[in-house]
Design a protein around this nucleic acid. Structure first.
Lengths: 231, 231
DNA sequence: AAATAATTATGATATATGTCAAGTATTAAA
DNA sequence: TTTAATACTTGACATATATCATAATTATTT
């Protein structure tokens, strides 16, 4: 269960997201007053593709998936995100809509900042703006790598890469609690759930990983890295 | 052959790129003074992935391809661009490097703005900044669509989509001078050049397109759109 | 114009991956 | 605890797409 928000949670965010470190005390104060927050359960939609962006949402606790939806097609999971993740996207200056959905894959807590306040900060605080765009730029760079990976690696390579990245940047322990379903891992790596099953089985048989219930342990990092590269 | 630059070419750009419409006369004056330009021949690299971003480059004439390079792998063409195209990318606020290459696919002319000047404009002119980010956001949205297309459409669907989009947004006439090689069309649609050949042959046989030398004519837009959708 | 290089076309074959189906295990609900 | 629903595994098979090889065009250089 998630604990109630502590009053200094903005301070917490301040430490974790780059952009908000650029704020003056006065700006912080305004932000802190305007702040309110929510919790989401697994599967709940935090941001919906196509919906207007009314607030800047910050994921403060829990894990979420960023999903490209296409009617009649399988979802594409662009990324899995952990706190502090700012749910901003390319629509912010274009059509003020989300161009992807963000969905909780564990219990999550978010807080909100009115979008007008965000624009004001961007317009008046160049340092904040620069850091904010830096964050967006970093995501784009990752997106390029996703495109490369999805186009040029074979299934084993993509699964290896996904396991390594999720372990390193999201779950951060080993073994870790692998909360994605095979379906989701397939949406993340661009393949069917059946193919995911088969590749994981191979990896298990070759002693690269161990899967116990929902726990995954990476046994041979080097070999996985190798497969990921050669993929 | 490309004519020498006219002195009012900044004015021309002003009309065509959104962001620069936000500049005051004084700002324009500074920009105009600092400006100098170059021509490139087909195949020449206008911006190189990994190289530092010293200037904001603007493509003022000709066509260029935006390419993701990966050592040992086939290139991925992210987009084909026509004037006025601002060669900015996600590295601008991150590591000040290009994360893709931009390569001329016809004779091109570009002009340059020192990157410090750009940062100054962004910091001091909120309207300019907003329009600039709008342009970047629009590109990201297109990138999402590329990911969708590459992952979820079959070869015929991807080729249809590519032909329709290139005709509509880049070449703008019909028939049009199809300057991409089969290899490049393959890099644009995520397949081998042989597969491109075969699909184009099918389309020709079904009377959807006509190819004469380097001229391509789209004969049946509706059918192509259909294939693109169902792909 | 001849020669060389690059691009395109096409067939035969290999391979990666998806699809369908059936069964098992796991989780959630009654 | 039993039942129902969901997730996972595995096999047999289908299919899309890549690879390789070779010939035919077309473009470029000499």
């Amino acid at each position: 269960m998630i604990e109630p928000t502590t009053p200094d949670s903005c301070q917490h965010c301040l430490m974790k997201c780059d952009a908000f470190q650029a704020l003056s005390l006065t700006e912080m104060e305004i932000l802190h007053q305007a702040k309110y927050d929510t919790t989401y359960r697994t599967g709940e939609v935090i941001a919906k593709q196509g919906a207007p962006i009314s607030h800047l949402v910050s994921l403060n606790e829990g894990l979420a998936k960023v999903v490209l939806e296409t009617p009649g097609e399988q979802d594409i999971i662009i990324s899995v995100e952990k706190p502090v993740f700012i749910l901003t996207g390319p629509g912010l200056f274009v059509d003020n809509r989300y161009h992807f959905s963000v969905i909780a894959i564990s219990e999550c807590r978010t807080c909100y900042l009115e979008i007008q306040q965000l624009h004001k900060l961007i317009d008046t605080n160049p340092d904040f703006a620069r850091r904010f765009y830096k964050t967006m730029g970093e995501r784009d760079i990752l997106l390029f790598n996703r495109i490369r990976s999805l186009n040029q690696k074979n299934m084993a390579g993509r699964i290896s890469e996904a396991l390594l990245n999720l372990q390193k940047f999201i779950f951060e322990t080993n073994p870790f609690d692998f909360i994605l379903t095979r379906q989701e891992l397939g949406e993340f790596t661009g393949m069917t759930k059946e193919s995911v099953s088969r590749i994981l089985k191979e990896f298990r048989e070759e002693g690269l990983i161990e899967i116990d219930d929902r726990k995954v342990e990476i046994l041979d990092f080097d070999k996985l890295r190798d497969i990921s590269r050669k993929g």
